Computed example of a mutant assay.
Amino acid sequence: MATAHSNGLELEYEDFGDPGAPPLLLIMGLGAQLIDWPLEFCEQLAGRGYRVIRFDNRDAGLSGGLDELGVPDMGAILGGDLGSVPYRLSDMAADVAGLLDALEIQRAHIVGCSLGGMVAQQFAIDFPGRISSLTSIMSTTGDRTVGLHTPEAGAVLGRPPAPSREIAIANGVLSSRIVGSPAFPASDEELLRRATAKVDRAYRPAGTARQYAAVAGSPDRTVGLRDVKVPSVVIHGAEDPLINVSGGRATAAAIPGAELVVIPGMGHDLPREAWDQIVDAIDRTARRG
């Protein structure tokens, strides 16, 4: 892994594959880290002929953050008072542009998952000359009438910071079980392994709260997405409890010519059983680009 200076922050990143191959940048979701893109998944993409880059967003993993801004008032933000929003998705999209600058990459295929899909969409809107293709996975447009979560999944978002490592890990396991794919459930051992790896690498609940505020404080992207010209695919789980599939359908409807791939039985995760279908969709869209 390495560190790049981007948009006033230090971003931790890692790349796979031929350095001279077409670059494909992966953007992860809320509070997630680059290790949430499974290593074998990245290697599978690299095997299709891409230079695959995964990185920690601002305020997550080992990347720089804005702890000096404190914890936003989510009650006020969700009530319409945006005064405590520390930054917006457009700032996170600018981080992506800065990372590409640091890596001397002019254009890349952009793949985003959940919040990362929102950042990828914003990047396509803000930096149209720097994107070759767009893949938005289990994400939504910012339209507050689509992509709604179930009460159980919403409780995952509202959980307070854990007071200990053990509780943080247990919460991670439970959260993954709640939002995961009902048709492709991961074993308890695998969920424990993932949660432990994430907590031991970095546990940053205040950063996650600031990212959540960025989502809540950013405008609807529907109109902007109508101007996206690059080949695009929208991938969503039919059983996603955290961002309902209506969010994916709305995203595909907003982007001219976008392909929609709805995977039966998939929730809000990247189950191994769906990797071939997801990688195929990313690859054929990138080749169109």
Score class of each variant (00 low, 15 high):
residue 240 D to H: 07
residue 205 P to N: 08
residue 177 R to K: 14
residue 89 L to M: 10
residue 179 V to C: 00
residue 116 G to W: 12
residue 188 D to K: 02
residue 249 R to A: 11
residue 146 V to T: 15
residue 4 A to I: 14
residue 140 T to M: 13
residue 203 Y to A: 01
residue 191 L to Y: 00
residue 258 A to F: 13
residue 150 T to K: 09
residue 288 R to C: 07
residue 177 R to C: 01
residue 235 I to H: 05
residue 151 P to S: 04
residue 261 V to S: 00
residue 209 A to E: 12
residue 148 L to S: 05
residue 55 F to A: 00
residue 288 R to L: 12
residue 29 G to H: 04
residue 34 L to N: 06
residue 196 T to Y: 11
residue 246 S to T: 15
residue 88 R to I: 05
residue 248 G to C: 00
residue 172 G to K: 08
residue 220 D to H: 08
residue 56 D to A: 00
residue 92 M to F: 08
residue 93 A to P: 14
residue 36 D to Q: 13
residue 67 D to I: 08
residue 148 L to D: 05
residue 95 D to I: 03
residue 178 I to H: 00
residue 65 G to K: 08
residue 10 E to V: 12
residue 61 G to H: 05
residue 253 A to Y: 10
residue 60 A to H: 04
residue 236 H to C: 10
residue 235 I to S: 04
residue 185 P to W: 03
residue 7 N to M: 12
residue 172 G to E: 06
residue 55 F to M: 13
residue 166 E to F: 00
residue 159 R to L: 14
residue 14 E to H: 11
residue 279 V to E: 03
residue 106 Q to T: 15
residue 229 K to E: 15
residue 162 A to C: 07
residue 193 R to F: 07
residue 134 L to E: 10
residue 150 T to A: 06
residue 101 D to G: 10
residue 68 E to L: 02
residue 191 L to D: 04
residue 232 S to V: 07
residue 190 E to R: 13
residue 49 G to H: 03
residue 214 A to T: 09
residue 64 G to L: 10
residue 265 G to C: 12
residue 51 R to Y: 13
